[in-house]
């Protein structure tokens, strides 16, 4: 009789132990170097990433006519992802032909990274006088302005004071995207760039 109850008891205990350690068991990270950005160091690391900073903007190089190609070379330009570059070279009426342009995708992808950093900094508001915080905030704002400026050089007309165009750029200022954004005018685009730069100036060291 006692033996029977002992058996039942051991089983129950074993089951409960498995149950309680089971949920802690799931806290291991799947990939060692993976992280949800949370600390200030994480945010700085995102901004330090080279591919964020060194994207060769194809359309600016082609548009600035930095080089030329022979007819045969242009004819034999490979089809595929870079097809829009071939059209850009001859300033074709329809450059993209429905495909996506890396310049736009990566251009905005870089702005997203800055937004993630800026949004993440909000949790550290009490540190806003410390040097690390200021460095990260200033850098992020500067980069965002720079990336937006680069996009504006390619995709928006220049700002002409008496003949302002309303066809500026659409962009997001936060990483929590819950509704579509809208296209700003050229003036608004440059105003954003300027305000980011001026704000960055407040945070960066002399």
């Amino acid at each position: 009789m006692i033996k029977k109850y002992l058996k039942i008891l051991t089983v129950c205990v074993a089951t409960l132990t498995i149950q309680s350690c089971g949920l802690d068991f799931l806290d291991t990270k799947p990939v060692k170097n993976q992280q949800v950005p949370a600390t200030l160091d994480d945010f700085l690391a995102i901004l330090d990433h080279t591919s964020l900073n060194s994207f060769p903007s194809y359309l600016s190089m082609i548009g600035a006519e930095e080089f030329w190609v022979t007819d045969a070379g242009w004819n034999n330009f490979p089809l595929g992802v870079q097809h829009y570059q071939k059209n850009a070279y001859i300033w074709a009426k329809n450059v993209y032909e429905g495909a996506s342009a890396q310049d736009w995708d990566i251009g905005h992808g870089r702005i997203l990274a800055c937004n993630i950093v800026l949004d993440g900094l909000e949790k550290y508001a009490e540190e806003k006088d410390k040097p690390l915080y200021r460095q990260i905030k200033g850098t992020a704002l500067f980069h965002r302005a720079r990336f937006l400026y680069n996009l504006a050089q390619i995709f928006a007309p220049p700002f002409i004071p008496n003949n302002e165009s309303k066809y500026g750029l659409p962009f997001y200022l936060t990483s929590a995207i819950v509704e579509p954004t809208y296209r700003r005018s050229v003036r608004q685009t440059y105003e954003q760039i300027l305000s980011d730069l001026l704000e960055a100036d407040n945070f960066l060291p002399e």
Partner: peptide, 21 residues
């Protein structure tokens, strides 16, 4: 969002690349 830490083989500097937004 998730990031992955990597070390650049040339500059030996650590940075984080965004894996998922």
């Amino acid at each position: 969002p998730t990031i992955s830490y990597i070390v650049n083989s040339i500059t030996n500097r650590t940075s984080a690349s965004l894996g998922h937004p």
